[in-house]
Simulated assay, not measured.
Amino acid sequence: MTAPARRQRRPVVLLRPVPGTSVIHDLWAGTKLIIVAAIGVLLTFYPGWVPILTVGVLVVVAARLAHIPRGALPSIPGWLWFMLFLGGLTATFSGKAPVIDFGSIEVGFGGLLNFLRITALSIVLLGLGAMVSFTTNVAEIAPAIAKLGRPLRSLRIPVDDWSVAIALALRAFPMLIDEFTTLYAARRLRPKQHLASRRARRKRWLIEVVDLLAATMTVALRRADEMGDAITARGGAGQIAAAPAGPKARDWITLAIIVLVCGAALAVELTVLPTSSAPT
């Protein structure tokens, strides 16, 4: 009998939009950046359960509207589940309220609830960033940043240069990841030498790290030279941030929906929950 094939893990895919068109795809990139910034501020000052769950529901609804397949999500390694379990177990030992009696033993679940809340907050923020990555073309980021930062030009802030730098960094990031992956795979295919002493193995490992870093710098410089030639052929770096872009009617409707939903969640968090949790 043949051994069962090992299930291949889905890698993390960043800054590459999911193909297709949808309501979320058609939104202006600046609208998505404003929503992410506003929700980030909301969850920074009011990281309660109601805002976290509300934003989580918004992320799930947006993923359904954008037709994001389940295969786009990366696989979760087993060690991460173990670390979450270990963190929750450690947080349980804090013994904060609420306290539940198990016979003669009292266990406080306050630390565990705080750990779960922070974990849920992290997952929601990662999902929010993933939605922007899955539904936004990298070429749309620079014009959006330049338009949103237009009021800062009166303060002599180089908004266009900043937007171009951010756009180039976002463009280069996926390419460099692919190059690093290829270099690492090529290194693993090299025949391994059998070294008897631990000192020789450590020295060989350091030599391989230096070789890999040198190859990585060479590839990054080559990619930068190619990108510079391509930008020059297309009219210079100023053309990256000069593309016409702006909000439309659907963007204003989306912003209004986000404001109403997040405002209602904040009102419930500040009024209903403190009243219900007050001692009688």
Rank of each mutant, 00 (worst) to 15 (best):
Phe173Trp: 04
Leu116Trp: 01
Asp160Lys: 03
Phe115Val: 09
Trp28Asn: 12
Ala172Lys: 00
Ile35Thr: 12
Leu125Ser: 13
Ala242Ser: 07
Lys96Met: 11
Ala185Leu: 07
Val132Lys: 00
Trp79Lys: 01
Ile231Met: 03
Arg6Asn: 08
Leu42Cys: 09
Ala220Pro: 02
Glu269Asn: 08
Trp49Lys: 04
Ala233Val: 03
Ile100Trp: 11
Arg190Val: 05
Asp160Thr: 15
Ala256Asp: 00
Ala167His: 07
Thr275His: 13
Met1Asp: 10
Ala243Pro: 05
Ala220Cys: 07
Val159Lys: 00
His25Thr: 05
Thr271Gln: 06
Val272Trp: 06
Leu14Asp: 00
Leu116Tyr: 01
Phe102Trp: 14
Pro74Val: 11
Ser154Gly: 13
Arg7Ser: 01
Phe109His: 07
Thr182Asp: 13
Ala224Glu: 10
Pro143Asp: 01
Ala215Cys: 05
Leu170Cys: 02
Phe82Arg: 14
Ala172Leu: 09
Phe102Ala: 10
Val261Ile: 14
Ala245Val: 12
Ala237Ser: 14
Leu266Thr: 14
Leu86Trp: 08
Val210Gly: 10
Pro4Arg: 12
Ala142Tyr: 00
Glu208Lys: 14
Leu121Cys: 05
Val12Ala: 03
Gly236Met: 05
His25Lys: 01
Thr271Lys: 03
Gly238Phe: 03
Gln8Gly: 08
Leu183Asn: 08
Arg117Pro: 10
Val268His: 00
Ala142Gly: 07
Ala245Asp: 07
Asp229Lys: 14
Glu208Trp: 06
Thr136Gly: 03
Phe134Gly: 11
Asp229Pro: 06
Ala214Thr: 13
Ala200Ser: 14
Ala224Gln: 07
Ala167Glu: 10
Arg7Leu: 03
Val12Asp: 04
Ala278Leu: 11
Gly129Tyr: 01
Arg187Met: 10
Val41Lys: 01
Ser104Glu: 15
Gly30Glu: 06
Ile52Asn: 00
Leu148Asp: 01
Ala242Tyr: 06
Ile253Gly: 01
Asp161Glu: 15
Thr216His: 00
Pro143Glu: 00
Leu168Trp: 04
Leu128Ile: 01
Ala264Cys: 14
Leu80Val: 13
Pro11Phe: 02
Ser133Thr: 10
Arg190Lys: 12
Arg171Phe: 06
Ile240Arg: 06
Val261Phe: 07
Val164Ile: 15
Asn137Arg: 15
Arg223Asn: 15
Ile207Asn: 08
Leu33Trp: 00
Pro244Asn: 02
Trp28Lys: 02
Met227Tyr: 04
Ala167Lys: 02
Arg117Ile: 11
Pro47Arg: 05
Val55Ile: 08
Leu112Cys: 05
Pro143Asn: 05
Trp79Pro: 13
Val209Asn: 04
Leu84Glu: 02
Pro4Gln: 01
Gly108Trp: 04
Pro151Glu: 04
Met175Ile: 13
Arg222Tyr: 03
Glu106Phe: 09
Ile118Phe: 15
Arg190Gly: 02
